[in-house]
């Protein structure tokens, strides 16, 4: 990549400057520390003579100069090394961003092209009469699922883009978090249960909060899909609500392997997906949790993640302001 080449060239240039500077400083120090001897010899060879006191004073003065230069050049060297380190850090960061964007583009390409490819093949097979009668229904069903997946990915991308541009506005209204969760789970079951997932609901009492119903749906969808995606072979996802202080809490927990060393805070950044996209382990484009975080914050709440729970798995908890409590 051209940018990486430029960066490497810059680093090499820095190294050359550092080396030159170190050599120059060493020469100066050497020069000043031998200056007095050189002057004494020069005067003697010219036929003059210096008293031992004069030689001592000369030696003291040039040693002082040498010390001064040593101090100053050490300070300058420190500055140079410091700035080189800053440059290096900036380059590393940029490299990370470039890699993340590359990963993102790869993931988006895959997420858009794969369902298009399979839907098209299903339909082409049907159109060309290449499908046995008992499979026709299944082919149509699968093509429809592909289109749904495509549409979900497009929604995710557009919503992520809008959130990045700060263009999405939420309208919070008084709602019961438990009722929202119950309805949400009913809506999500047909999507996940036939694929082998179990959705458990634990909403013992009403939790009156201020929330935007559309934003809530998106939060729940993303967290549940995430739980199903990372929840292992037969994922079991538990959705619960409760009150805690001035907050109403929605928690979504899976029983998978946990974050497996992934950075706790970085999972909420846009386009972050674990590992290298070529070795793909999970579908998705890396916007789901970023969307959850942004929507939670726009409703005056927040999202938190815990893993290493007893029994394994990861739990995401979203806070919503309770009704009738003052929130800044």
């Amino acid at each position: 990549m051209a940018r990486a080449r430029v960066a490497r060239r810059m680093l090499r240039l820095y190294a050359v400057v550092l080396l030159l500077y170190a050599a120059l400083a060493a020469w100066w120090v050497y020069f000043f520390s031998t200056e007095s001897r050189w002057i004494v010899e020069h005067v003697r060879s010219a036929g003059g003579d210096l008293s031992p006191e004069q030689v001592a004073v000369l030696a003291e003065v040039t040693a002082g100069n040498a010390r001064m230069f040593l101090g100053e050049s050490a300070f300058l060297l420190l500055l140079l090394v410091g700035s080189a380190w800053l440059v290096l850090r900036a380059l590393r960061r940029e490299e990370l961003v470039v890699r993340q964007q590359g990963n993102f583009l790869s993931a988006v390409t895959h997420e858009l092209r794969s369902p298009v490819a399979s839907a098209r093949l299903y339909l082409e097979s049907l159109q060309l009469g290449r499908v046995e009668a008992d499979k026709r229904e299944r082919y149509l069903q699968h093509a429809q699922e592909d289109l749904q997946r495509l549409s979900d990915t497009i929604d995710e991308l557009l919503q992520g883009r809008r959130l990045l541009d700060r263009g999405l506005v939420v309208h919070s209204e008084p709602l019961d978090l438990s009722e929202l969760a119950r309805r949400g789970v009913e809506r999500l079951k047909p999507m996940h249960v036939p694929a082998g997932a179990t959705l458990e609901l634990d909403v013992p009492q009403p939790v009156p909060v201020l929330a935007d119903p559309v934003a809530f749906e998106r939060i729940l969808d993303n967290l549940v899909s995430n739980g199903v995606k990372y929840g292992g072979e037969q994922p079991r996802v538990r959705i619960a609500t409760r009150r805690h202080g001035r907050w109403g809490l929605l928690s979504v927990r899976d029983h998978g392997k946990g974050l497996a060393g992934a950075d706790r805070q970085r999972i909420f950044e846009p386009f972050v997906r674990g590992g290298d996209e070529t070795v793909r382990t999970r579908p998705g484009v890396g916007l789901g949790l970023f969307i959850v975080k942004e929507l939670a914050e726009q409703q005056g709440g927040a999202v938190d993640v815990e893993d290493g729970l007893s029994g394994g798995g990861t739990q995401f908890t979203v806070r919503f302001p309770l009704q009738g409590t003052a929130h800044p």
Partner: peptide, 16 residues
Amino acid sequence: EDEAHLAEVVSDNLRL
């Protein structure tokens, strides 16, 4: 192929 749908429709057609 890791995408189950693609694997299905491609292999069905090749078998045909």
